[in-house]
């Protein structure tokens, strides 16, 4: 175990598939309670990157540390949210929210408390006994995001959870995720193709390069919240990040 002031440290992460060099020496740190967005050009190896962070793949070189220890999904609490909602169809909204915590064998009173808080934050009091198929895709995704936050994860990874939702819906959900994050103080790494979304959400944006992928630049977004997408400073950052990844 090494001394560190960071919650998450990615150190020289490198991945080859045979002779294909996908990730090259990726290093960055995330402070406890920080919200980071990762953007990169289409096909830049972000899925491989995520699969390394979740420990589905082993890196060729380098490692991921949580609280100074090599990350271990059996010990550390790593939560993920994917683009496709992954609720459990035969469980109600409330049971879906409880599920992860029950697996982790948390005390019932603790689970009750966290579930109530999340349901309230999401404004889903009337839907606690509904089943996922009775909800829209966007509401189903809200449950999954709530479930991930409820785990009090060491690291919460989100992979384009708002995919191709329209601006109005996207802004609503982005405000909601910020509210959850501010209330619960999780450490979030949020991956997106959408630059406006990254500038709207992040404290810091990591810009990835083409393959072999490395971190090309870090941009810190020091704008007050709620952010205004028409604010010239917002637009300036959005343009800058777009220029860095634009391949089309």
């Amino acid at each position: 175990m090494k001394e560190t002031k960071y919650k998450v440290e990615v150190d020289s992460l490198t991945k080859y598939f045979g002779s294909l060099h996908v990730l090259d020496n990726i290093s960055f740190q995330v402070r406890n309670g920080e919200f980071i967005c990762v953007v990169g050009p289409t096909g830049c190896g972000k899925t491989t990157f995520l699969n390394l962070l979740t420990r589905i793949y082993q890196p060729t070189r380098g490692d991921l540390y949580i609280d100074g220890q090599s990350a271990n999904p059996k010990k550390h609490n790593i939560a993920f949210v994917f683009q496709e909602p992954s609720s459990i169809p035969w469980m109600t909204v409330e049971k879906n929210l409880r599920f992860g915590m029950e697996i982790k064998k948390l005390p019932k009173a603790e689970i009750d408390g966290r579930v109530e808080r999340i349901i309230k934050l999401l404004g889903l009091q009337d839907f606690r006994d509904s089943y996922p198929h009775q909800l829209s895709v966007s509401s189903e995704q809200r449950i999954i995001i709530g479930r991930a936050f409820a785990m009090n994860p060491d690291l919460l990874l989100m992979d384009e959870p708002y995919g191709q939702m329209d601006v109005k819906l996207r802004f609503y959900l982005e405000d909601e995720v910020i509210r959850l994050w501010q209330e619960l103080g999780s450490t979030v790494v949020f991956i997106t193709h959408n630059i406006e979304e990254a500038v709207y959400l992040a404290q810091r944006i990591l810009i990835m390069s083409n393959k072999p992928t490395t971190i090309k630049e870090e941009v810190s977004v020091d704008l007050p919240r709620p952010r205004d997408v028409a604010d010239p400073r917002f637009i300036e950052i959005r343009k800058h990040v777009t220029d860095q990844i634009k391949w089309w």
Binding site: Y172, V229, A230, I235
Partner: peptide
């Protein structure tokens, strides 16, 4: 897409649509 006029029209239309949660 980041021209102020463009963003203004996008907002105007957005405000005229229902939030489809």
């Amino acid at each position: 897409t980041v021209d102020p006029q463009f963003l203004r029209i996008r907002k105007e239309i957005s405000q005229n649509t229902d939030l489809a949660l």
